[in-house]
Amino acid sequence: MKYSEPLDSGPCWVELGTPDIPAAKSFYAALFGWHCETDPRPEAGGYTMARLGDAAVAALTPLHRPGGSPAAWTVSFSTRDADATAAKVTSAGGTLLTGPTDVFEQGRFAVVSDPEGAVFSLWQPRAFAGAERLGDPGTLGWAELSTRDTVTALAFYPTVLGWTVSAGGSYTHWGVDGADFGGMMAMGEEFEPEVPPHWLPYFVVTDVDATAATALSAGGDLLLPPTSIPDGPRIAVLRDPQGAAFGIHRSYRED
């Protein structure tokens, strides 16, 4: 990610929906050094802020319905007008799933999906802009879309969010005014047919191999072993003990 704080239309926040908040707190503390604070207000529904030092970097939210949605990370993108952007989503073939809704005085959000079903959130900041650190170890560093229809995605996201596109070989880079923050890969035979298109957050770490080993020892799984990408960073894809997938990568700032 080529910026260190949220930009309009760029990724600004990540939330983990999980059936076991205490277990998630322990797991991600071991991986990233996060300490978590649960909002005590009943109307907050158990919303838990993850911090690195004093900086808010992510959130954990309870999954209240047994047998409902699986544990998963959701990437949020900043917008100046959640209602207008949600309308763009539907007019471009996407789906409005939740909202737009106010979150106290913090901002306004909506949960949407693109035409192929990849879910993401829109965040209109008010008191809260989003992650207070990006691109540092222990924070969000990249957001990747996996989809079986890259042509539709290339039309949808620049229309809805105004992203710039840089295509290189088999991998597409997304950016805000040319500042890359993520990418897109085509889902091939390595993905099981039941795996839907999805957004995957990548968190920055100083040592991919050591972090992957820590994840395994803490009860997680390895979906993609540590791998060095040609002309890119070293990465791995993990799954936490509750089943939520996420990536890790070595900081671009160190390469």
Results as ranks from 00 to 15, higher is better:
Met1His: 09
Asp255Thr: 09
Thr79Lys: 09
Arg51Asp: 00
Ala86Asp: 07
Leu222Asp: 07
Thr79Ser: 14
Lys88Asn: 11
Ser146Cys: 10
Glu190Asn: 14
Phe77Trp: 04
Trp73Lys: 00
Ala218Met: 13
Asp177Lys: 09
Glu105His: 06
Ala179Asn: 04
His35Val: 09
Pro225Gln: 08
Thr227Tyr: 11
Thr101Lys: 13
Pro137Arg: 02
Ala218Asn: 08
Ala210Ile: 00
Pro193Met: 07
Glu105Gln: 11
Gly117Gln: 11
Thr85Ile: 02
Glu192Pro: 00
Ala86Pro: 03
Ala59Tyr: 04
Gly33Trp: 03
Phe120Tyr: 10
Glu37Gln: 08
Gly138Thr: 06
Phe246Ile: 02
Gly17Glu: 09
Gly243Thr: 06
Val75Thr: 15
Gln242Pro: 06
Leu31Phe: 06
Thr164Lys: 02
Gly17Val: 01
Thr159Arg: 13
Thr18Ser: 15
Ala143Arg: 04
Pro225Glu: 12
Ser113His: 09
Trp174Cys: 05
Trp142Lys: 05
Asp231Tyr: 02
Arg126Trp: 08
Gly99Trp: 11
Ser146Val: 05
Ile21Gly: 02
Thr139Asn: 04
Asp136Ser: 03
Thr150Trp: 01
Val176Glu: 04
Ala155Gly: 11
Thr95Arg: 14
Leu200Val: 14
Asp54Gly: 15
Pro196Ala: 15
Leu140Val: 13
Pro193Asp: 14
Ala244Glu: 09
Phe27Cys: 07
Phe181Gly: 01
Ala155Leu: 09
Thr206His: 03
Ile21Tyr: 05
Ala155Phe: 03
Trp163Gln: 08
Leu223Tyr: 03
Thr139Arg: 05
Gly243Val: 08
Ala218Glu: 15
Phe181Ile: 04
Met49Asn: 02
Leu97Phe: 05
Lys2Asn: 13
Asp255Trp: 07
Leu96Gln: 14
Arg108Tyr: 09
Ala84Ser: 13
Thr211Arg: 08
Val151Lys: 13
Gly117His: 10
Phe77Ile: 06
Arg65Gly: 02
Val111Trp: 02
Gly45Arg: 01
Ile229Tyr: 11
Phe109Pro: 00
Ala24Gly: 01
Thr164Met: 03
Thr85Ala: 13
Met185Glu: 07
Leu97Thr: 06
Tyr252Met: 11
Asp209Gln: 13
Ala55Cys: 01
Leu224Glu: 12
Asp136Val: 07
Arg51Ala: 12
Cys36Val: 00
Leu223Ile: 10
Ile21Gln: 11
Asp255Arg: 12
Ser217Ile: 00
Thr101Trp: 01
Ser170Phe: 04
Glu194Cys: 02
Met1Glu: 01
Pro19Lys: 00
Gly10Cys: 08
His173Phe: 11
Ala59Lys: 04
Ala153Lys: 07
Glu254Phe: 01
Ser166Phe: 05
Ser217Pro: 00
Pro137Asp: 06
Asp221Ile: 01
Glu5Gly: 01
Val204Arg: 06
Gly93Thr: 11
Val237Ser: 03
Tyr3Phe: 15
Thr150Asp: 04
